[in-house]
Computed example of a mutant assay.
Amino acid sequence: MQLRLVFTFLLFACGSSAVYAGCPAMFDAEMRLLHSSKTVNLCDLVEGKPVLVVNTASHCGFTPQFKALEAVHQQYGAQGLVVIGFASDDFRQEAKDEAEAAAICYKNYGVSFTMLAPSRVTGDRANAVFKAINRQSKQPDWNFNKYVIDKNGAVVQRFGSATKPDNKKVRDAIGMVL
């Protein structure tokens, strides 16, 4: 009986550590969704799954890549891949108004994957996810850098802005983590 009480206490004391044992530390964050007051717990979203992380901007020459990102999401989502777009104005190409950014993503390109509210992705003020990515790989040097991350939180491959999400090299990297 005492052992059961101790075990129960430890479960409550550990809290999210027990719940998120399969979640990489880099995703242990609550972030606001684009043009919403709602937040998403990234561990709930990615636990035990590979991830494609992309830093985005709604007024960039690479913005049409949203269409290919959505196609990747549709093709690989059922196999477990999670696509997350991190809106950012680090390169001064994000809409100043989140409603406009959301319209570009959701209405113009039909984005249904998770899009997060604008945050920093470079330097000391980068959000926690990109701080972890930047320690493992080259930080974004422009919008629409793509990072294929395995279910353990390791960056498997980084693709620059010019590499489209439906490029064979990106798809091959995704295939490696599925």
Rank of each mutant, 00 (worst) to 15 (best):
Q65K: 04
A87N: 10
Q157V: 12
S119L: 05
S161K: 13
C105M: 04
V82P: 00
N55M: 03
R135G: 06
M26P: 08
G48F: 09
R32V: 14
D44G: 09
G153D: 12
V51N: 07
A132R: 07
C60R: 00
V54C: 06
F66C: 03
G153N: 14
E30G: 08
G160V: 13
A126D: 11
V156I: 15
Y147I: 06
K107W: 00
K146A: 11
A173S: 09
P64Q: 04
E98T: 13
M1H: 15
A132C: 06
L52A: 05
K38I: 00
R92M: 11
R125A: 14
D141P: 01
D90V: 03
L10V: 14
K146F: 10
E70I: 03
V51A: 08
T114W: 00
I84S: 01
L34Q: 01
A173T: 08
K138E: 01
M31R: 01
N41T: 12
R120C: 10
G22C: 11
N127I: 04
N108G: 01
D90P: 00
K164T: 13
F27A: 04
V40Y: 05
P140K: 01
G153W: 13
Y76V: 02
F113I: 02
F7P: 11
A154K: 15
G80F: 04
F130W: 06
V83M: 02
K169W: 08
Q65T: 06
H59P: 00
G77A: 05
G85F: 01
N145H: 15
S161Y: 12
A162C: 09
C60W: 00
I104H: 02
N127L: 07
L5M: 15
